[in-house]
């Protein structure tokens, strides 16, 4: 567990970057610091591995104050990923990844063997190992950056805007990869971003900072969307938070109606479309009970008849959900 105990950071020449922040970040979870620029989120992150020292207050890892620990040794035990990856341009991809194990006293050969496995783990082919960072795309560089941070298998990872320097399509892929990796590894991750959608997507817990280094609200993504503490948080979280909060629930509990005669299915029972005066109109997609309620809402809106079609694992239609049933279900759930 990482603990912020009444932490303050004041820069000489005025300007409070972090203002009496107290937090507890759970082990094995992803905590995302999010807020507008100048809110102290990066300063807070960098106080965990002593890249910045607090003016007052303490930062503790598993109860031990980081201030009393050897800087270099502390940092070797904490993965560090930054924006633009910050790879060493004069070293090959493989040697970049092997950096921390070598610092920890591993032989170059051992470190390189471990690095090779990690490259695979972050989804980079072996052929990249001998290339230099300048020969990689931004997304590939960021993968190498993550591999470098993971190389010594640290229990904690700090990630400072790790995905903000890549284009949206690549970012989407990196997000998926991140969630898959985190499911496998279960690290204690602290991530900084200015993108609330990224925070909601990747965080188990989200800490929203406001200008002046004050924590505005701490909570799970669901809590922040459902119950913002004040106007600042509500505005920061965004207008369509009602719709987005549907992403956290599956359609498992949503009641469905039996298939109506208007739904055309093929011989196997897979939906083809809706009967209409000018032939069969496509359904626009289907959902399973494992999909999110957000998808169901989306399908109900897109459907030519305002009805989402549910299918089972084999793609066979087994029920329908008209948009008013979804609305009733959501209303009943809220009360």
């Amino acid at each position: 567990m990482i603990t912020f105990d009444d932490v303050v950071k004041v820069y000489p020449g005025g300007g409070t970057a972090v203002d009496h922040v107290s937090l507890e970040l759970a082990t094995g979870k992803t905590t995302v610091f999010v807020g507008p620029s100048g809110c102290g989120k990066t300063t807070s992150l960098r106080m965990i591995n002593r890249m910045i020292s607090p003016t007052s207050g303490r930062v503790l890892i598993d109860g031990k104050d980081v201030a009393g620990q050897d800087e270099a040794l502390l940092r070797r035990g904490i993965g560090y990923v930054i924006q633009h990856a910050g790879l060493f341009p004069h070293r090959t991809v493989l040697d970049n990844v092997a950096t921390v194990p070598v610092l920890l006293g591993k032989t170059r050969r051992e470190a390189r063997e471990a690095a090779m496995k990690l490259l695979e783990r972050v989804g980079l082919a072996a052929e990249f190992a001998q290339r230099y960072p300048a020969q990689l795309s931004g997304g590939q560089q960021q993968r190498v950056g993550v591999a470098r941070a993971l190389a010594a298998d640290p229990p904690i990872m700090l990630m400072d805007e790790p995905f903000s320097a890549v284009d949206p399509v690549v970012r989407e892929g990196l997000h998926r990869e991140f969630l898959r990796l985190q499911q496998e590894l279960g690290k204690t991750i602290v991530m900084v971003t200015h993108d609330i959608d990224e925070a909601i997507k990747l965080g188990d817990e989200v800490v929203i900072f406001r200008q002046g280094g004050v924590v505005a609200q701490v909570g799970t993504p669901q809590e922040l969307l459902a119950d913002p503490a004040d106007d600042f948080v509500a505005e920061f979280v965004g207008r369509d938070r009602g719709l987005r909060s549907l992403s956290f629930d599956t359609a498992a509990g949503l009641p469905v109606r039996p298939l109506p005669a208007e739904l055309v299915v093929d011989d196997a029972g897979r939906p083809l479309g809706w009967k209409s005066a000018d032939g069969v109109r496509p359904t626009g997609g289907t959902f399973t009970s494992a999909d999110t309620l957000r998808l169901v809402a989306d399908l109900a809106i897109l459907s030519p008849v305002g009805i989402a079609v549910r299918v089972d694992a084999d793609g066979v239609a087994d029920g329908i959900a008209p948009h008013h049933d979804l609305a009733d279900y959501l209303a009943a759930r809220r009360s």
């Binding site: 890249m51 040794l73 060493f88 470098r148 941070a149």
Partner: peptide, 8 residues
């Protein structure tokens, strides 16, 4: 910054 951050 990255060099310091990884513990050099």
């Amino acid at each position: 910054d990255a060099a310091r951050g990884v513990g050099m």
